[in-house]
């Protein structure tokens, strides 16, 4: 995927057209850009700054404030391993180790083919299902290293998804 300034600009203009020209629209627009590109391209931030008439310094501040936004390209599948207290206590680290081993990337990194991004997060608000691993929008509860392998390689089925303790 090559991103030209022109293509980014026209896409951002489309996105911005859905929102009032107001600083308050910023976060929602950034969300839309993030789901479009999986990250926030610099040109997109520049364009948003122009369109909303919000200084780029402020746009950049918001874009870097939230963990949910990334300024570097991310993979199609984003895997977030929870290392919050509950998940940590219940062995979240082992899932992280396994994912790093299979994907060959460390936490915070993206695979070269832009397929996977691996992230560590602190509590996704689902402690009762600890340890939790989130694959895009899917929550894997009581996740084990075997589940991780199955998730990536597709071996076996995901039937125990949502299974009980």
């Amino acid at each position: 995927m090559t991103l030209t300034v022109e293509s980014v600009n026209s896409r951002i203009d489309e996105i911005c057209a859905d929102y009032p020209v107001d600083e308050a629209s910023l976060i929602e627009i950034l969300h839309d850009i993030s789901s479009e590109y999986n990250f926030l391209p610099a040109d997109a931030l520049r364009r948003v700054s122009e369109r909303l008439d919000v200084p780029i310094a402020r746009v950049y501040g918001v874009a870097t404030f939230y963990k949910g936004f990334s300024l570097t390209p991310r993979g199609k599948t984003i895997i977030r391993v929870c290392k919050g207290t509950a998940c940590h206590v219940r062995g979240g680290d082992r899932n992280l180790d396994e994912l790093q081993r299979i994907l060959g990337i460390g936490a915070g990194e993206t695979s070269e083919d832009l397929e996977y991004t691996l992230e560590v997060v602190n509590c996704v608000g689902a402690c009762a299902m600890a340890p939790v691993v989130v694959e895009n929008e899917t929550y894997h509860r009581n996740a084990t290293p075997t589940d991780m392998k199955r998730m990536i390689t597709g071996e076996g089925s995901d039937e125990d998804e949502g299974g009980d303790e």
């Binding site: 780029i56 310094a57 950049y60």
Partner: peptide, 30 residues
């Protein structure tokens, strides 16, 4: 921001990695 009114620089990130930063880590256009 408040006195000069140009908002050329800002903060980036938060928590332990918060820093004063030029937007996009480039010389500030504004």
């Amino acid at each position: 921001d408040e006195v000069i009114g140009v908002t050329a620089i800002g903060t980036a990130n938060r928590g332990a990695s918060k820093e004063i930063s030029e937007p996009l880590k480039e010389p500030p256009v504004d």
